[in-house]
């Protein structure tokens, strides 16, 4: 049952995503690239690019994209439901069973441990993506400019994406020869 498989994969991913959509990238890599072989590394990076420039949360966008690509509209619905379901269940249970302030010290400590792990996981994913996709000086240049704008100037992500797209298109318009071999 491919639909159940899609749902279950994204349910697991949703359940172990802590701290926002980007934290799911290491899980997507393991589950979708290594285990299920639904995607390649470069495709995942493309999906994340699309997910962050499309309205909506990155996690849902990425889930819909993968499901739709694999099994059409119904596939998209199953992956979306899968990634949402853990959030819905956990929050609803906490809301009704615990008091509104859910700040149990043990939960917070466990959360601190999980976050330390997620930092390492994201760092590792970034390194793999960087090695796999930034293979020439043009890509490296764009990456460095993006880092400066983000870390030093705290530029809004959407503006940065527009600038990145502009740099890609500009390179293609002004240096078509150099870029031709790099585009695939």
């Amino acid at each position: 049952m491919i639909y159940f498989e899609l749902f279950y994969s994204f349910f697991k991913i949703g359940l172990f995503t802590f701290g926002g959509g980007y934290a799911m990238i290491p899980l997507l890599e393991k589950e979708l690239i290594e285990n299920k072989k639904w995607l390649t590394n470069d495709e995942l990076l493309e999906i994340m690019s699309i997910a962050q420039m499309t309205p909506g949360t990155i996690a849902i966008n990425a889930a819909t994209f993968v499901g739709y690509r694999e099994k059409g509209f119904l596939g998209g619905l199953f992956t979306t439901a899968g990634v949402i379901a853990p959030s819905y269940l956990v929050i609803t249970i906490i809301y009704h069973l615990f008091s509104h302030s859910f700040e149990h010290p043990i939960a917070q400590k466990a959360f601190m441990g999980a976050r330390a792990c997620i930092v390492a996981l994201i760092g590792h994913s970034v390194w793999k993506m960087f090695k796999g996709s930034v293979t020439d000086r043009y890509g490296l240049g764009i990456f460095l400019i993006a880092c400066v704008l983000l870390f030093a100037f705290n530029i809004h992500p959407i503006l940065l994406i527009v600038i990145g797209a502009g740099m890609g298109l500009g390179l293609y318009l002004f240096f078509p020869k150099q870029l031709k071999d790099l585009l695939k």
Binding site: A23, S49, R115, I122, V126, S133, I142, F143, L160, L169
Partner: peptide, 28 residues
């Protein structure tokens, strides 16, 4: 043009993911 578009956006995406990781690191 679509390929050039993604050629520009992919490094930006990696930078954004790095930044998101840094934001989590900062508070952790």
């Amino acid at each position: 043009f679509k390929q050039a578009f993604f050629f520009g956006i992919k490094p930006v995406t990696i930078a954004l993911i790095l930044f998101a990781g840094w934001k989590i690191a900062e508070t952790t």
